[in-house]
Design a protein around this nucleic acid. Sequence first.
RNA 1: GAGGACGUAGCUCAGUGGUAGAGCAACGGUCUUUUAAACCGUGGGCCGAGGGUUCGAGCCCCUCCGUCCUCACCA
Length: 477
Amino acid sequence: MSSEFDERVRRAGQIGALGSSPWGNRFDGAQPIGPVASSFGVETEGKSFTVAGRVTAHRSFGKAVFLDVRDRTGKVQVYARQDALRSSWELFKHVGIADWIGVTGTLGKTRTGEITLFATEIALLTKALRPLPEKWHGLQDPELRHRRRYLDLIANPKVLETFQKRSRMLSEMRRFLDARGYLEVETPVMHSIAGGAAARPFVTHHNALDRDFFLRIALEIPLKKLLVGGFEKVYEIGRVFRNEGIDTRHNPEFTMLELYHALGDLRTMMELCEGLVVHLAKEIAGGLTLPYGEKVIDLAPPWPRKEFYDLLREHGFDPADQEQLRTELRKRGIDPAKMDAWEVLDEIFGEVVQPQIVNPVFVTAQPIEMTPLCRRIDGRPAHADRFEAYVAGMEISNAYTELNDPIEQRARLEEQAAGDASKTDHDFLRAMEHGMPPAGGIGVGIDRLAMILTNNPSIREVILFPLLREADSGAEE
RNA sequence: GAGGACGUAGCUCAGUGGUAGAGCAACGGUCUUUUAAACCGUGGGCCGAGGGUUCGAGCCCCUCCGUCCUCACCA
């Protein structure tokens, strides 16, 4: 048990004894702190303002106190003195760091020049029973920062800024797409067959139906059914779940944008991808030249288009020379024995080429085997009409000219299912047999894009509550 | 899954085998323009959990839990 907790409970009781609630109700008339503070000038000096927020610092001089009060928009100093507050002074003596208060006061400057609200009235809105993290080291422990994100957001202003940017990123994305005539839809999270990507799914169980379902690993399949149904320009922004490892670029649940554009193709998606990312960078990151860790990323379009095989050659590998490639993998401690030829190529690409990409590159014309839902390049059947957009060594986007031949689609899905009919999505194939228009489609990893736009090195820094093991309950309290 | 690092007060951290510490936060006091306010005083610990070695363990050994990093996995 924490004695500070007990002390604060005692305080709350004293506040109650003064006839006031330590946990107040609705508070009207508060203006955002940031704009109020920055409005200081001849117009506003001496005028009365009301703000509300959390007390983040408390400098007491007995019969006068300086407070820092913070809301989502900023921070302002409040000066409270006994003779100005009169009757509410007794109550105010029980206000401390971490409490929520509402303040009415006149705007001015102290003699050290700090913009200050000289309080005429203070209301206690919520008494906090637990303390805030320490005031200048803040909350450092990454485990506590992620488990108790609410404290992280209070203690580390940059964290709040990151998540505000992420929020704006999502709304800008919707604005951008809506303005171009794309319709947002919602499709099921629980699937009978986990399709649209190759990843291990999470399994869940429906009791009344007594059967298992998979949490979706991609949005692709239902969105393509909507293409068949006549949603010609459609997108979904949603959570997908992959039951795989966790590291700085992977969280088991993450957010994807997937979008389909009937009558378009890969080129349509390149323009969209470039345009969208450029728009977001301008709106969220303030420009196209972004610091990212030690690097600087230049997002200026047009992004270079490079074929997969050409990139391998540029890095000194002959895509046709499997022996050379396999030797290189072994040198890197990777065993290629069970890999198909295309898997070796993909592995080399991931090892050698991908980490070296800093500025955005559209990598195109990958081996067709990697992508059962992608159309072959017309006249080049071994190559997928696909791009992956890489930035800062990360894949942030993956797009196809979509395969709309239902006969080939069935063959490729059945081949992938390797004879297990239960793994073939017959309803998807049936939909395609009704005629899916030619289309371009794209997926964008929202979390990774957020990492780049907010200059954060780990996906956990852009997900409010990243997956952690359950804390040892004995460690609580 | 493998290797490494870490886990001590609410927070940030000292403490390499001999009486558990500091700063901030909290509480009491002085103080009506401070900026990490200052000063005086007080309280606060299953040292992640369990086992072992030892006269004696926060410290050494083992197991477990958790976090981070690197690698592996990851169309």
